[in-house]
Amino acid sequence: MSFWSTLLAELRKTATLPASWVAGTVTLLGSAGITVLNAIGTRAALDAGAPESRSFVSVFETGYAAVPLGTVGAVVIGVVAMSSEYAANSTDAGSGRQVTATLAASPRRIALLGAKALTVALFVALTAAVSIPASVGVARLIIGGDASEPVALDVALVRSLGATLYWTLTGLIAFAITVLARSGIVPLVVLIANSSLVSVSMLLTNITPLAHWLPDLAGRRLFGGLSTVEGGLDAGPGALVMAAWTLGLLAVAGVVFSRRDA
């Protein structure tokens, strides 16, 4: 039982779990949908000859505006990768949990967790690689080529990669928390609310500047260019802080997972 076999098994498991595809598809269609709304507004403003009235006159900015919300998709992928292990089957079918079969097949737990984390990272990155260009593509289709593009291609690329990194780290944090919680409900509610409705970390910055070092805020400049609250870390150091949180949480999850009874 090599690490490779465990990884291939985990990739297969995630690829055959409907919830992971639902998360990926909702992310893709959700960001495309938001982009359609934004792009129609931008097109109308251009047609009216008053582009200043729209905050996003560039095709890239219009498409990219939907990207931060896509973090929700990364959270769902990270959570279901682990919560599906602990979901009880119907009592009709013996009410067993998949984690029993998983650990019987791959009893080396750190290797198993590593394979799962890598799987989450790959699926989130894949979702980003499809969703972000798709959103920008949708924006271009609707706005058309006659808008001036103030965002250079290399900047656009760096920001897309930054967003992909942010999504991936968020997905891994969601995964690590779910390993500790052994259920998907609490991590899903807390993390989705935090990355879409109200950012608890953002509110905390009103109380203490230390909140800027929390993972979701530390990494937020990876998106680049978007208007956000002042202060906090720059993209580079912020990414390092967020990555350190991710590795730290994965390490804690690894220690707990390898010691605890299944």
């Binding site: 779990l17 409907p18 919830a19 599906s84 979901a87 089957n89 119907s90 079918a93 013996g94 009410s95 067993g96 949990r97 998949q98 029993t100 079969a101 998983t102 019987a104």
Partner: peptide, 8 residues
């Protein structure tokens, strides 16, 4: 405890 297979 049963099959250990995820229901979906």
């Amino acid at each position: 405890d049963g099959s250990g297979a995820h229901r979906s």
